[in-house]
Design a protein around this nucleic acid. Structure first.
Lengths: 313, 313
DNA sequence: CTGTTAGCGCTTTCAT
DNA sequence: ATGAAAGCGCTAACAG
């Protein structure tokens, strides 16, 4: 029965007629293989557990998971997403123990030595960490938030801006991201002789309008605003237009994410593109390598941020 | 060993000293229970599989999953989300076979008779369907999109509007939703003697501005715009303000979702609140009931949409 | 070509 | 109080 059902037909072991009888019986009885027994016997599953860093669940993030999931599914795996990172720190470990996945994609900071060794002994064969920078001996997807800021600074310097007003997001979900991006921005800006001033800002139309009035209404020559994402940037643009301040002549504006809103806005917003669908597909394929080949080397897959010039710089 | 590790200490079966020895050995060897063996032996897991309808992955949706996941985690389950609905129709069945979850939350239309019986025989004890309307014999979360439209129509009728311009979303992810909401809107509107006109609209600033210019620039008395979500509604508001058309005096605007953008916009957007955190918590608890009690009755949990009056109606 | 069996890791019953 | 063993569903090795 096992041979027939699994198609192990090495050198005609099974008579076609027997095969038919087995198949017929299976169909008649509505036979379905038992997942637990399969996993116990084979010592592996086809499940890949995915946990995301504490990113806001906006378009860039959902794009990433959807692409990764899609490619994994195509490769025959069953990708499952474990939400709830920070709120239940033990959650991933528990999930790992309970599904014994064969692969794991998770933020670097939860992948401690202890966690990894317990996961490995639990059957996990492929681990990919989502990190800020490469980690020795571990496959990583490197998403360097600082680099995003650096690219923005380069773009602004190239366009001749001399002064950057960096909006630091007050939204707790964006705070970390925001700080890192501005850190990168500042480092390059200073090297290029630009000055940077950081101001806290929320995703609030009125507050942003007030902020614009206070800080940018009469801008110094060569001032640009850097926002941590397009939503913030678009609020700035809106406020500037309401005040009839010329963009990009008087003030430049640059966002991050290259969201569809940014591409459709008028004037089209300059932004930093981070989305790299093929990057997540490559992650899936790297994971596939690791599960199939025993000594697959650790890989590093980098997100390459690029400035997408719109009409606001 | 099993008795010690599982704390089965009925009437002092185990000598404290033996218990200690077992515990020490387990610690020393880094013992971790094997998920597959556990599942095989006990015939159940603590996994709950979640699949969402083809909703756009915006704030209302992510809110829902996060709340549901959180409560399930609190109850001791391991919630896992299977993304990819339409793209891989077989995906959920495969996922179900592979993890043999004890609970399942999924859109009603994938829960066919065949699927359910195969899932049940695979160990699934609790199923909750996300549907438009209750299904006999099945526990359901009822999210009636038509009802959302009805509530909007009631609100507008109550405010004295006589004519509604309904914006039907062209975005494929929103098309279905949009159609249903407008259907509900229309039914109540007609009953109340309001007229409804449906116009396709995309989430595009310029196109929306053009649409407003063409259709609402010189509105008939008592005209209101109904948008399928707040993002669309806010574009309308922006365009109306640019044209100095008085809101809500000349034209009313109502959105859906009661998003944070809507609450923070100026003027504050009237919207339909659908978010019901406690609804998803109730879903989790209902599921818990079903897994623990053998003959738990099917429950129906309804989302109650409510108009949240802002300054645009 | 087919039938039988051990054993994956675990719990629980039964004997001692 | 402890030890031994059966069996959950499956596959692969082995004997026939």
């Amino acid at each position: 029965v096992s041979y027939v059902l699994n198609g192990v037909d090495d050198r005609h072991r099974i008579t076609p007629e027997t095969r038919e009888r087995v198949l017929a019986a299976a169909a008649r009885l509505g036979y379905e293989p038992n997942a637990a027994a399969l996993a116990l016997r084979s010592g592996r599953t086809e499940i890949v557990l995915i946990q995301l860093p504490e990113w806001p669940l906006g378009p860039p993030t959902t794009d990433a998971v959807l692409t990764l999931s899609d490619e994994l599914e195509l490769l025959g795996y069953t990708p499952l997403v474990h939400l709830l990172g920070a709120s239940h720190p033990e959650g991933l470990a528990r999930a790992c123990r309970r599904v014994s996945p064969i692969g794991l994609v998770a933020p670097g900071d939860v992948l401690t030595e202890a966690f990894l060794s317990s996961a490995r002994s639990g059957g996990v064969r492929a681990v990919i960490a989502i990190t800020e920078r490469p980690v020795a001996g571990l496959s990583t997807v490197v998403i360097d938030q600082r680099r995003i800021g650096r690219v923005a600074a380069q773009h602004l310097a190239g366009r001749g801006y001399r002064h950057i007003l960096a909006l630091e997001a007050t939204d707790p979900g964006l705070a970390q991201l925001s700080r890192e991006r501005i850190e990168g921005l500042t480092s390059v800006a200073h090297k290029s002789g630009l000055t940077v001033e950081t101001v806290p800002a929320g995703l609030d139309r009125e507050a942003m309008d007030e902020l614009v009035g206070r800080r940018i209404a009469r801008p110094a020559r060569g001032t640009a605003v850097f926002a941590v994402n397009d939503a913030h940037a678009l609020l700035v643009v809106e406020s500037l237009r309401r005040r009839s301040i010329a963009i990009p002549r008087s003030v430049g504006v640059i966002g991050c994410d290259d969201s569809s809103e940014a591409r459709q806005s008028c004037p089209r917003l300059t932004s930093i593109r981070l989305r790299a669908p093929d990057m997540w597909r490559r992650v899936a394929r790297a994971l596939h390598q690791m599960t199939s080949v025993d000594s697959a080397p650790a890989v590093t897959i980098r997100a390459i941020p690029r400035a997408v010039a719109g009409e606001t710089t």
